[in-house]
Design a protein around this nucleic acid. Structure first.
Lengths: 118, 118
DNA sequence: ATTGGTTATGTCAGACTAAACATATCGGAA
DNA sequence: TTCCGATATGTTTAGTCTGACATAACCAAT
């Protein structure tokens, strides 16, 4: 119930940016793993892609969501900025609100059961 | 404010179906225009695509959302089934709930202003 | 200096998507 | 019977997105 795989909320803003579970999970992964590559491994996503998503986010928000540094003993790493933490929290809040909405259950009940193929 | 172009909510269900503003607007267009092609014209979407979306929806829900008939004086037409109306209403309700959420304003405030290019 | 894990980019083929064009069918109304 | 606007599909091309591979730069610790 913590991470409902059945539901995914994607927001599409006028600036052209889309923000959904992929980016949210990536932000969370970075926060918990301490690096972009670590988050990529956890999410089974190539570093190339993870990095591209980070760049997209950093470029579309007022300020970067992810702060990264390279080199050093551990090779470098990345952390969430305060804005990054706030954005992640906001998204999670919206997700939780959506999950509790009765209309969502109504929609689910209108779908085919899982037993249906393709 | 009725149709906020800045925001789009897309739901991704486990069955693989995605349902967002495109399909919702299409359903509404069909309800108001009385035909798939009319809705397509209004939404500036090819009939080919509009029809494909309808078929996808009809196939992924318990029962069809759109009822269509061909031939006749007006060439045919399409209307929403009760389930179709219900699904549309549920989606609009979720959309409205989301729009009122304070976290959404918070997210918006974190984005770049419109003046930014690309 | 060497090392190791990470950030940061480039490239390129293949998969997937979207758009454009083309037909065939239907059936009430004139 | 002919016509018209709509449904219902097929085909093809163009464009976009994705994934895999490759490489360079970075720098604290050893």
């Amino acid at each position: 119930m913590k991470n409902d795989p059945r539901l995914s909320l994607r927001l599409h803003f006028e600036q052209g940016l889309t923000f959904g579970r992929g980016k949210a999970d990536l932000l969370q992964g970075i926060a918990e793993e301490g690096s972009i590559s670590g988050a990529g491994r956890r999410l089974k996503m190539s570093y190339r892609r993870a990095w591209a998503l980070v760049e997209e986010m950093n470029g579309n928000f007022r300020a970067p969501l992810v702060d990264s540094s390279r080199g050093g003993a551990k090779g470098g790493g990345a952390t969430l900025t305060e804005l990054g933490q706030a954005v992640l929290a906001d998204y999670r809040a919206l997700e939780a609100m959506l999950r509790k909405a009765p209309e969502l259950d109504s929609l689910r009940a209108s779908l085919c059961d899982m037993s249906d193929k393709k």
